[in-house]
């Protein structure tokens, strides 16, 4: 367990091409377990093309339901619910319900049911490089409290332990909220994939702060670098002053879409393209970072 290293690839802002980069790196890193923690919009399996070996149910948070036939209409539950989830007719709106249990514990008549239900699945797979992949799918609109992310990471780690694999590479969710926090806690290296745009720069600062909050070693990759070379430079300077390793600049690659459509990585579609070159360089640099840990 102690020797397993975890790399998480994050982006802050969505759509920077993070998953395509993870897919390409995963194809180069042969001795690894891949984990897709972007559970409400999982995409990595669409590149790694896995065979599912095992499906595990994810049980979500609890929600309250009032048994109207026995409810006395005393109104206690509506008073204590801070999330305006209970209607005047004492029907719980599950979209609003935070699952805090206040109505359940405080209903004098004891007519509130408080239970959890199936909220998604976690898949343990073997991908097309015959390496393990773990990914999950949350049911649409379910609460993404980070618990499913934690489940994916735990499954990935235990696969790595069982098979003696030294490395887990995690495709992280966008943003900086609970799923991201859950995917970052305790990892060794955070690779931030950003883009040279005003939004990309803005979000980069926040995601680097988050990574440093968790004390992970942070490295930065700029994707679509030629769209705005000026911002690209600024990102490189900013990352260095923040003490991050700058891994490189990937040019805008129109064939990325083709790779997605063919369900594979850019390395397979255009092995000689500048993009593939740089990804191989980034792969080498990452290995060096891992050795130095």
């Amino acid at each position: 367990m102690n020797n397993i290293k975890e790399i998480v690839v994050v982006s802050g802002k969505g759509g920077t091409g993070k998953t395509s980069v993870v897919g390409a790196l995963a194809s180069l890193l042969t001795n690894r377990v891949a984990a897709d923690c972007d559970v409400d919009a999982a995409n990595l399996h669409m590149i790694l093309n896995p065979v599912v070996i095992e499906e595990k149910a994810f049980i979500g948070g609890k929600k309250a339901t009032i048994d109207l036939s026995r409810c006395t209409g005393c109104g206690t539950c509506r008073e204590v619910c801070r999330f305006q989830a209970i209607s005047e007719g004492y029907v719980v709106d599950h979209r609003q319900c935070e699952g805090c249990g206040a109505c359940y514990f405080l209903c004098p008549a004891g007519v509130v049911d408080f239970s959890s239900s199936y909220a998604g699945s976690c898949y343990i797979c073997r991908d097309k490089y015959s390496a393990p992949l773990v990914y999950a799918e949350l049911l649409p609109g379910e609460e993404n409290s980070g618990k499913l992310v934690a489940m994916v990471r735990n499954e990935a780690r235990s696969l790595a332990e069982k098979s003696g694999t030294p490395l887990v590479i995690v495709d992280g969710p966008p943003g900086i909220g609970c799923p991201v926090i859950s995917s970052m806690t305790g990892v060794h290296v955070a690779v931030v994939v950003t883009e040279p745009t005003i939004s990309g720069v803005h979000d980069l600062e926040r995601i680097i702060d988050l990574a440093q909050f968790f004390k992970c070693k942070t490295a930065v990759v700029v994707n679509k670098g030629d769209v705005n070379p000026d911002y690209c430079k600024r990102i490189e300077e900013y990352s260095t002053t923040k003490g991050c390793t700058f891994l490189g600049v990937i040019p805008y690659e129109p064939r990325i879409t083709e790779a997605q459509i063919r369900a594979t990585t850019i390395l397979d579609v255009a092995p000689d393209s500048p993009t593939s070159e740089i990804i191989r360089v980034i792969h080498k640099k990452l290995l060096t970072i891992l050795e130095e840990l």
Partner: peptide, 27 residues
């Protein structure tokens, strides 16, 4: 917010109209 979980539900819950922006790729 991006994604399809609770932050989206909290945002979209009382919308009169939702515009979904997508791109023609598998993802």
């Amino acid at each position: 917010p991006p994604g399809t979980a609770c932050p989206l539900v909290a945002t979209i819950g009382d919308a009169d109209l939702a515009i979904m922006v997508t791109e023609p790729t598998p993802f």
